[in-house]
C-alpha cells in the first residue's frame, strides 16, 4: 500500500488512481462498512495474540521484582504486584558469574557486530555494481553456502584444529558472515542512485570514499536493521559456548548462564551461602532466576523500538523488490 502511495506522490497525474479516496476512517469508499461482530472478533483475536506475547513477559518482570513473601503467596509466578523490591537484582549483580557473563556477552556483541558489519558492508558494496568484474562468481560462491554445509561436526573440527577451543573468536568468526544479510545490503546498495555515484566520482572520490560518503548515508535504515540482526545474533550466542567452552565458567555468555540456572536448575553460587552475611533479606531463588531472564531480555527490549520502525519499512521494501 505504502509503495503505491509513494509512486502516486511522485507522479501527480496518477494520484487519483493510486490513492483512492478514503473516508475519514481511512477506509476506501467502495469497501462495505465493517460489521460490529466482525470488528469485535478481529479486536478479540488481536488482543489475545498480543496478550500471549506480553503477559508472560509481564509476569516474569513482576516476579523478578517480588519479595519471597509475595512469591510464596502466589504459589509461583506473581501476577498482581505487591511488596516490590530490587533485592533480586542486588543479589544477581553481587554474583560474580552473572556480572562476568554480562561483560563477556557485551564484549562479544560489540566486537562481533563490528566485525560482521565491516565485512558484510564491504562485501555487499563490492558486489553491488552491475557488470563489475567477477561479481557473479563471488555471489555464487556465497549463495552456495546457504544450501550446502559441511555440518556441525566438520565445522567443529575445523574450528578446534585452528585452535578455537576456549577462545572467544570461536563464538564470533564462524558465524560472522551471514550471506542473507549481505544479499539484503547488496540489493539496497545497488539501488543507490547512479547519478549520485557518478557525481562523486567526477569529484575525484574513489570506491572507499563513495561507499562511506554516498552509499552508506543513503542506506542508513537498512544498515541499522542488519546491525540489529547481527547484534541480536551475538547477544543470543548459546550453542557456541556449549560447543567450544563448556567448562570455563569465566567465559560463559549470559544465555549459557541462563540455561544453567533456569533450565538445568543449577544453584547460583553465592546464594546458598549468601555473600551478604545476613544483612539483606535473602532474595527468593525464583525471583533471582527471573532477574537473570530479565537481564537477558532487557538489552533487546531497549534497542528494539529504535530499530523496529526501520526494519518494518526496510524489510518490507526489500521483500517487495524480491
Amino acid at each position: 500500500m505504502t509503495e503505491v502511495g509513494f509512486e502516486g506522490a511522485l507522479a501527480p497525474g496518477k494520484l487519483s488512481q493510486a490513492a483512492p479516496p478514503r473516508r475519514s476512517s481511512g477506509r476506501p469508499v467502495w469497501e462495505e462498512p465493517p460489521t460490529t461482530a466482525g470488528q469485535f472478533g478481529k479486536g478479540t483475536v488481536l488482543v489475545v495474540v498480543m496478550a500471549l506475547v506480553l503477559v508472560p513477559l509481564y509476569c516474569i518482570v513482576v516476579t523478578s521484582l517480588s519479595t519471597q513473601g509475595a512469591i510464596n503467596q502466589a504459589g509461583g509466578l506473581v501476577l498482581v504486584p505487591h511488596g516490590l523490591t530490587l533485592d533480586a537484582y542486588r543479589e544477581v549483580f553481587g554474583n560474580g558469574t552473572v556480572t562476568r557473563s554480562l561483560e563477556v556477552t557485551f564484549g562479544i556483541t560489540l566486537v562481533g557486530t563490528l566485525i560482521s558489519m565491516v565485512v558484510s558492508v564491504l562485501c555487499a558494496y563490492g558486489l553491488s555494481r552491475f557488470r563489475s568484474f567477477g561479481h557473479r562468481t563471488i555471489l555464487m560462491v556465497l549463495i552456495i553456502t546457504m544450501f550446502v554445509s559441511g555440518g556441525l561436526i566438520p565445522t567443529f573440527i575445523v574450528v578446534t584444529e585452528l585452535g578455537g577451543y576456549d577462545q572467544y573468536w570461536a563464538l564470533i568468526l564462524p558465524n560472522a558472515v551471514s550471506v542473507f544479510n549481505i544479499l539484503v545490503l547488496r540489493s539496497f546498495f545497488s539501488s543507490t542512485s547512479t547519478d549520485l555515484i557518478d557525481a562523486a566520482r567526477l569529484d575525484g572520490a574513489g570506491e572507499w570514499r563513495i561507499l562511506w560518503s554516498v552509499v552508506l548515508p543513503t542506506s542508513r535504515a537498512v544498515t541499522a536493521v542488519i546491525a540489529l540482526f547481527y547484534a541480536v545474533g551475538y547477544w543470543n550466542t548459546f550453542f557456541g559456548a556449549m560447543l567450544y567452552m563448556p567448562t570455563d565458567q569465566q567465559k560463559w555468555p549470559i544465555q549459557y548462564v541462563l540455561y544453567q540456572y533456569v533450565n538445568l536448575g543449577m544453584t547460583m553460587p553465592g546464594v546458598a551461602n549468601s555473600g551478604y552475611g545476613g544483612i539483606h533479606q535473602q532474595a527468593a531463588p525464583l525471583s533471582l532466576s527471573m532477574a537473570v531472564v530479565v537481564l537477558t531480555l532487557l538489552p533487546i527490549l531497549i534497542v528494539y523500538p529504535f530499530v523496529q520502525k526501520h526494519f518494518a519499512k526496510g524489510m518490507l521494501t526489500g521483500a517487495i523488490k524480491g
Binding site: 564491504l122 563490492g126 568484474f133 558472515v177 550471506v179
Partner: peptide
C-alpha cells in the same frame, strides 16, 4: 578495489563454510 572489498567475507566463508 571492489574485488578487494569482498576478500574478508570470502576468506571467512572459505574457512568456516
Amino acid at each position: 578495489t571492489l574485488l578487494l572489498m569482498t576478500i574478508p567475507a570470502l576468506a571467512l566463508v572459505v574457512v568456516f563454510n
